[in-house]
Nucleic acid binder design. Structure first.
Lengths: 132, 132
DNA sequence: ACCTACTTTATAATGATTCTAAATAAGTGT
DNA sequence: ACACTTATTTAGAATCATTATAAAGTAGGT
């Protein structure tokens, strides 16, 4: 199975639930954005057996910690995740509450001139809010 | 009183509570970041009488809608607000969970090349995550 | 002073997320 | 295969920020 090694290599036991969540998250051409509730719905649609909501939370957080998912910094009552973990940015359509990917080439290079002593830059994320 | 006109001009009645919250938010040299709970604490420290938590929420949201406050897009269990409503960006220190202002001059100009049909760019916000 | 619409308030409700502790499954050595 | 240890799953409870409710209070105009 294609995700067993991926999980083992990061010290996660390849359980049935995790493998099924991998199928939903990573077995697609396109990357996508999701909230936990949307993911749970997708799992229900795709898979016969039921996975506990707690497991969905556990797994998403485990995958995030291992770098297979990213949180998208945005103000919403729910947390948004992204299966695209490459460096990129987002449009956020305020009216439709929809996220749209911005490739790095869509945004000029960003040069942070200020330095903070003893700290390294981990990521630079741009959120472009859209209105009609 | 210095905030009465500000409130009246935006269609908000200058109530005692709103004026006191104005004092806490805007009567300082420096702008600052806060959560609702931090603001409530500040109000308690600065003011004799008590303002209901619901009023703090109501007022902050009213001020945000009028453009006197901005939400900062960041993933946290609490919503962060900023009294600095000019265009600028933020460092987020992951370890200390602290926000630091980045002036526009600290970040090169950002040129968004992609256009979305029928939508205008309302804001461009950069979040730079810091680690040790 | 009176009226109307807005505001405040305490409290309840909501809802996403996290916690708990018991049951289950995976990995390891024999 | 078996026993043993440790990780994982799970249902349900707990937490906590935020929003809703509805009754009491206040501002501004007439």
């Amino acid at each position: 199975m294609k995700y067993i090694d991926k999980l083992r290599n990061s010290g996660l036991r390849p359980t049935k639930q995790r493998l099924q969540i991998c199928e939903v998250l990573f077995n697609t051409e396109k990357t996508f954005h999701f909230t936990i509730n949307e993911l749970e719905q997708k799992i229900k649609d795709k898979i016969d057996c039921k996975i506990s909501l707690a497991t969905v939370y556990n797994t998403v957080h485990a995958f995030e910690k291992k770098g297979y998912l990213k949180q998208i910094p945005i103000n919403s009552n729910q947390t948004y995740f992204d299966t695209n973990v490459t460096d990129h940015h987002h449009f956020y359509d305020l009216k439709d509450q929809k996220l749209i990917d911005l490739e790095n080439s869509d945004v000029g290079p960003i040069n942070i001139k200020k330095k903070i002593n003893g700290k390294r830059i981990k990521s630079v994320e741009v959120l472009v809010k859209l209105e009609d």
